[in-house]
């Protein structure tokens, strides 16, 4: 027996979502079919609402439902500090630490020539536009891209450009996880932790 076309279409659309394979798509489709109509309506509405009301912040490119995000408009925060991250999820992770009270800039990716992602595909031009009018003496840009090969290359690329225009630039430290045993750290992490040791 062939599935009705409405079901096939639903499975196909669900299967396009990241992390959802054909089998999960099928399971989700049957689950949706068995839900009361009211709940399905709410889900559909939530998806549409999110799509219609969410956009990228004009300044930092974080996800927001207003013109400027709540971080960029918060006057309590230190506006002379900008932390550059790859994804909105990275921003949330840093926010959870509660250690940082500056602003952010979300690149929406990292340099990866293999995947056709160069500087123009990221929000790098917007970052430098933002930095005009930045006080060189007191301001600082923190590069918090991932420690993958691509994240490192992105950080180095930005560092070169930032140093050229005389802005203080730093890279988040890498090394051992807090509360971790040395013997369980992988060899490269441990090697870098030793190279980047600091004086007490």
């Amino acid at each position: 027996m062939k599935y009705p076309s409405a079901l096939i279409q639903l499975i196909r659309e669900l299967g396009k979502l990241p992390g959802v394979g054909p089998k999960s798509a099928q399971r989700l489709a049957f689950h949706l079919f068995n839900l009361p109509e009211e709940e399905v309506r709410e889900l559909a509405q939530a998806i549409l609402n999110a799509k219609n009301s969410l956009k990228q912040c004009k300044l930092c490119y974080n996800i927001t439902d207003t013109e400027l995000c709540s971080i960029c408009t918060d006057h309590q925060r230190n506006h002379e500090l900008i932390c550059v991250v790859e994804q909105p999820a990275d921003l949330l992770a840093i926010e959870r630490s509660g250690e940082y009270d500056g602003l952010y800039h979300v690149l929406h990716g990292s340099l990866s020539p293999m995947n056709g992602i160069g500087p123009d595909q990221l929000t790098i031009a917007a970052l430098f536009e933002r930095l005009q009018g930045f006080d060189q003496n007191t301001g600082e840009v923190i590069l918090a891209t991932a420690t993958t090969v691509e994240g490192e290359a992105t950080a180095m690329y930005l560092a070169r450009l930032l140093t050229d225009i005389g802005i203080t630039t730093s890279r988040i430290a890498y090394g051992l996880p807090v509360g971790g045993d040395l013997e369980y750290a992988d060899e490269v992490t441990l090697g870098r932790a030793i190279t980047n040791r600091r004086k007490l």
């Binding site: 340099l111 020539p113 160069g118 500087p119 290359a153 180095m156 690329y157 070169r160 450009l161």
Partner: peptide
Amino acid sequence: GELSLSIW
């Protein structure tokens, strides 16, 4: 670009 290549 010259800069991209020098980074990699």
